[in-house]
């Protein structure tokens, strides 16, 4: 007990907390933003990923608790997310339906589902995902703890370049981009716009569900109704910030994850003033990025052409 060393690491703690925060807190951002990136590339917006994230977190925790297998929980979270994706994919492609409005309804629906079925899982303790300890070479306990990373993070790290390659170099990736950029051209190619968008939304929601699993089964590692605290919505903004590029989604997620750790870490070394400001750091960052990247004259470079249109 209390093996934790008594030596304080002072200011290094802030850097360490941010570094650890990028991996701990960045994982859900990473999955949701990759999912949203795929969805938006096909020309549809899915704001409902906030609800998907909550449903994923609840499903993962519940299944992990009931079956004793956290990995089964991760898969179940993905499937639960995909089911919500089916609803969004179908609804948002009906004639004259606005995908933003459907997305907002899906936020409420997804969180309602999660709260309703999640009631019995608030108290019990579910088995957590195993972590990969990269810090065993060091004898500083703080470093060891910071380097306990989840396999889900590595999975997300792998998905980002794969998705980038998928968009650039595969036939299917071309279909997704074509449908997103110019639906007419895609239709002329003989590609079913409905099917491509449906599959993109389902796959994107599957990833967001897994993002939820990383919240409830890794960090902070529990199920409460307040667990997502708006991360699903932040991730949607993050995709714009990342210019619909999966690799940049990765960097953006790490940045936002690290920013979350800033407020508490600074307080722990004695920067007492302005913690509300530090806590708001990620949001302020988002706001500035939005201001600097928006333009009334032209579309943001990299934006799928058909995004937000009803075609």
């Amino acid at each position: 007990m209390a093996a934790e060393a008594t030596q304080a690491i002072g200011w290094w703690g802030v850097l360490l907390a941010i570094a650890a925060g990028t991996m701990r807190g960045g994982t859900p951002f990473l999955f949701v933003s990759l999912g949203e990136c795929l969805t938006e590339k096909s020309g549809k917006i899915n704001l409902g990923l906030e609800g998907t994230l909550l449903t994923g977190a609840m499903t993962a925790y519940g299944v992990s608790y009931l079956t004793g297998s956290p990995w089964l929980g991760v898969i179940a979270a993905g499937i639960a997310g995909a089911l919500l994706g089916v609803i969004h994919g179908w609804l948002s492609q009906q004639p004259r339906v606005n995908d933003v409005a459907v997305g907002i309804a899906m936020i409420i629906f997804g969180s309602g589902i999660a709260f309703f079925f999640g009631k019995p899982f608030i108290q019990p303790k579910a088995p957590q995902l195993p972590t990969i300890d990269l810090g065993n070479w060091s004898d500083i306990p703080a470093l060891q703890a910071a380097l306990q990373i989840t396999p889900l993070f590595l999975l997300g790290l792998a998905i980002a370049p794969v998705m980038n390659w998928f968009f650039r170099s595969t036939r299917w990736g071309l279909f997704v981009r074509a449908v997103g950029d110019s639906p007419e051209a895609a239709r002329a190619m003989g590609v079913s716009i409905f099917k491509v968008r449906m599959l993109s939304i389902i796959a994107g929601s599957f990833l967001a569900g897994i993002g939820g699993a990383s919240l409830s089964l890794y960090y902070p590692g529990l199920w409460t109704e307040r667990i997502s605290s708006g991360q699903g919505l932040m991730a949607v903004a993050l995709v714009i910030f990342a210019r619909w590029n999966p690799i940049q989604c990765l960097w953006a997620s790490l940045l936002f994850g690290g920013a979350q750790a800033l407020g508490p870490a600074l307080q722990s070394v004695g920067i007492k003033e302005g913690y509300y400001l530090f806590n708001a750091a990620p949001y302020i960052l988002t706001l500035f990025i939005m201001i600097f990247t928006c333009s009334s004259k032209k579309m943001i470079s990299g934006a799928p052409g058909a995004l937000g249109t009803s075609s």
């Binding site: 030596q7 360490l16 902070p220 605290s229 750790a261 407020g263 508490p264 806590n279």
Partner: peptide
């Protein structure tokens, strides 16, 4: 201070930072 009554991630970060400070 985390700033609100239910902030799971900030509570976890706060606890971790304090452990890091001994």
């Amino acid at each position: 201070f985390t700033g609100n009554w239910a902030e799971p991630i900030k509570e976890a970060e706060a606890t971790n930072s304090m452990v890091d400070q001994g």
